[in-house]
């Protein structure tokens, strides 16, 4: 196990290094930030001053190694537009995004699992067909459209929920959370639901497929034959066994939920990391773009790692030290 972990860690370090190169080249290729940032009224002398102030007059390799050197000391650069450390900006925004992603995951599980279970146990019933048809919509409707429709219906027409923004927050563990206040919760519902639509559909499909496969297994048949109650068969014998793929996918999806909350956040003006990265891309705020993507890379590496470990806990057949990495 230890050997495996060490090997995995070394691989991860290489991935991170490779990512820094790709990111740096990619961000460099998008365009010249000075053209975006500088006031149109600026003359040539001011332009040259600004280029030097942001360090853009240096050759690319020099900019890269400066970045790498600072990054090793935990400094991911200063934002061009905010004049604050990029890492600080992103970490400030992280709780809002985490909260949104967690709320979306909770929605996915409390709605997706039961619906998937129903659809799996009674595959031919009309309500099961309705569930499955709806889940196709969940996959295929674009998030921005659904988001706007939610706002139109629940905020503009019915006036039940606030249209955009993050409501009042309360402090917990030194961080501001909105789910701790009732008004904050009202602000959270629509964006979280919008973000979770895809995940709900995914969990429904996974659960249904798992249930359909498992109910035909011998041990389920045997449990029934033994005269166990249907509830016990479903919740112990079936559900427990289908949880592994569901956990894997939910955990991996959690990463993409954070990384791709961009659309939902910009539609609902949710002040999270996704909105920050979009705003930063518009103005080519290179340090923030690079820092954000580095954090996302780190997050995916850690998530994959965690999933591997969780596997061995949930499924005794999986032994990490047996794997060839």
């Amino acid at each position: 196990m230890t050997v495996y972990l060490i090997r995995r860690l070394m691989q991860s370090a290489l991935v991170v290094l490779a990512m820094t190169v790709i990111l740096f080249l990619g961000v460099y290729a998008i365009g010249d930030p000075i053209e975006i940032l500088i006031s149109p009224d600026a003359d040539q002398i001011e332009r040259e001053r600004a280029i030097a102030a942001l360090g853009l007059d240096r050759p690319l390799w020099e900019q890269y190694f400066t970045f790498l050197g600072n990054a090793l000391q935990g400094d991911l650069g200063r934002s061009f537009v905010f004049n604050e450390p990029a890492l600080k900006l992103i970490l400030q925004k992280m709780p809002a995004t985490l909260e949104l992603a967690l709320a979306a995951t909770v929605f996915a599980i409390i709605l997706g699992l039961p619906l998937g279970l129903i659809a799996g146990l009674k595959p031919d019933a009309i309500y099961s067909r309705v569930i499955m048809a709806t889940s196709i919509l969940g996959f295929s409707l674009p998030t921005f459209w659904v988001g706007l429709m939610l706002i139109m219906v629940f905020a503009v027409q019915l006036g039940w929920l606030p249209s955009t923004g993050r409501g009042p927050t309360a402090e917990f563990l030194g961080v501001q959370w909105s789910f701790l206040t009732t008004d904050g919760l009202r602000y959270l519902i629509m964006p979280a639901l919008n973000l979770s639509l895809f995940k709900i559909s995914l969990v429904i499909r996974l659960t249904r497929a798992g249930v359909r496969e498992t109910v035909l297994m011998d041990y389920v048949k045997f449990a029934r034959a033994k005269g166990l109650s249907p509830n016990r068969v479903i919740f112990v014998h079936v559900l427990k066994n289908i949880l592994i793929p569901v956990v894997t996918v939910t955990a991996l999806e959690f990463g993409s939920t954070i990384a791709f909350s961009v659309v939902t956040e910009s539609i609902f003006a949710w002040p999270g990391m996704g909105k920050l990265i979009i705003d930063s891309i518009y103005v080519l705020d290179r340090p923030v773009i690079v820092a954000y993507l580095m954090i996302i890379v780190f997050m995916f590496i850690i998530l994959n790692f965690t999933v591997d470990v969780l596997y061995s806990v949930l499924d005794p057949r999986v032994r990490l030290q047996d794997q060839k990495a």
Partner: peptide, 16 residues
């Protein structure tokens, strides 16, 4: 700050 045009308009119509 509400950058998205449709969201900004909706926020006004919703009274937020």
């Amino acid at each position: 700050i509400i950058v998205n045009n449709a969201a900004r308009t909706a926020a006004l119509l919703a009274g937020d």
